[in-house]
Measured scan of single mutants.
Amino acid sequence: SASLEDVKTAVLGLLVILQTKLYTLPASHATRVYEMLVSHIQLHYKHSYTLPIASSIRLQAFDFLLLLRADSLHRLGLPNKDGVVRFSPYCVCDYMEPERGSEKKTSGPLSPPTGPPGPAPAGPAVRLGSVPYSLLFRVLLQCLKQESDWKVLKLVLGRLPESLRYKVLIFTSPCSVDQLCSALCSMLSGPKTLERLRGAPEGF
């Protein structure tokens, strides 16, 4: 439990870093931090981490990651405290083949985003970082199938509809809506759902 406290501190630090690096160059920093966060949550489900502190780590990670939004130009952003989304000039939600690297070039400044813009690109060529939603999407499927803490599952179920409104997140990387529907149906009809959940409301 003591070591998990250190892990929790590290994860919180990564969330803060991602919130900053999403809007700064090099964009590969945001890509790497995002991948680290998603990989860490995957390990929770792989090794069945069920301690309360592990659940709190997942809760905080999902609470942040499910706020990711994308505009029509595929640029990622996060809402501010007033709910207004600021889109990044440097990070996009497109999935890119590994051989192309985590970044790609664009020939010049991008068109203005639909929300308040981030800082304008400084040079004639900007390297865009790929932060594909499919990585998070796979972890969300694991959550629906394996999550043991009701608070975490409730958060994910509550945030998913709003995330799905931003269709560009889903359609720019390999996210299977069929698998999502299947996971939701299995969660509702499967007898093991109630068996594994802690803290579920009576009558769920």
Results as ranks from 00 to 15, higher is better:
L76H: 02
G77D: 02
T9N: 06
T20V: 13
A30H: 03
Y49A: 03
Y45L: 00
P201L: 04
L14W: 00
L197C: 05
L51T: 10
M96A: 15
L197K: 02
L18W: 06
S186P: 02
S134F: 08
W150K: 00
K21C: 04
S130W: 06
E97T: 15
Y45S: 00
S72C: 13
D178Q: 06
T31P: 09
V156W: 00
W150M: 02
R198H: 11
Y166E: 07
G83N: 09
S72G: 08
V131L: 14
L78C: 11
G158W: 08
K46R: 11
E35P: 02
L141S: 03
I170D: 03
R32A: 05
L15K: 13
A2N: 14
Y133C: 05
T31F: 13
R32S: 04
K81F: 09
S1C: 09
S186V: 10
L135F: 11
P132K: 07
S148M: 11
H47G: 08
T172F: 03
S88V: 02
P161H: 11
Q142M: 10
Y95Q: 11
C91M: 12
A27Y: 08
K46V: 13
P117F: 10
V92H: 09
L4Y: 08
L78D: 03
V38T: 11
T24F: 08
P109N: 13
K145Y: 14
T193K: 06
R138T: 11
F87M: 06
G118F: 12
V85C: 08
A10T: 01
R127V: 08
C181T: 09
L164N: 00
H47C: 13
G203M: 06
T193E: 07
L144M: 07
V177M: 12
P174G: 10
S186Q: 15
S102A: 10
G13V: 00
P113Q: 13
C143V: 05
H29L: 02
L12M: 13
G77R: 02
S173D: 05
G13E: 00
K192E: 12
Q19M: 05
S48P: 07
L136N: 03
L141K: 02
L18A: 05
P79H: 05
C175I: 04
T172K: 04
R165M: 10
V156Q: 01
L160G: 01
L141P: 01
K46S: 12
P113R: 15
E162G: 08
K8I: 04
C91V: 13
V168P: 07
L197D: 02
P109K: 14
A54W: 04
P79L: 07
P201I: 05
E162N: 09
L141E: 05
Q179P: 04
T172L: 03
A70T: 05
L194F: 12
L25E: 11
T31G: 09
C91A: 08
L51A: 07
L14Q: 02
L51Q: 05
S107P: 11
P132H: 06
K46C: 12
S173Q: 04
T31V: 11
P79T: 06
T106V: 13
T31Q: 15
Y95N: 09
L67S: 11
L180V: 04
F87H: 06
G13H: 01
D178K: 06
T172Q: 06
F87S: 05
S148W: 15
Y166M: 08
E97C: 09
L37C: 08
P201A: 06
G115I: 14
R196N: 10
T114M: 15
F171M: 12
P117W: 15
P89N: 09
K8V: 06
Y133L: 05
C185Y: 07
K151L: 11
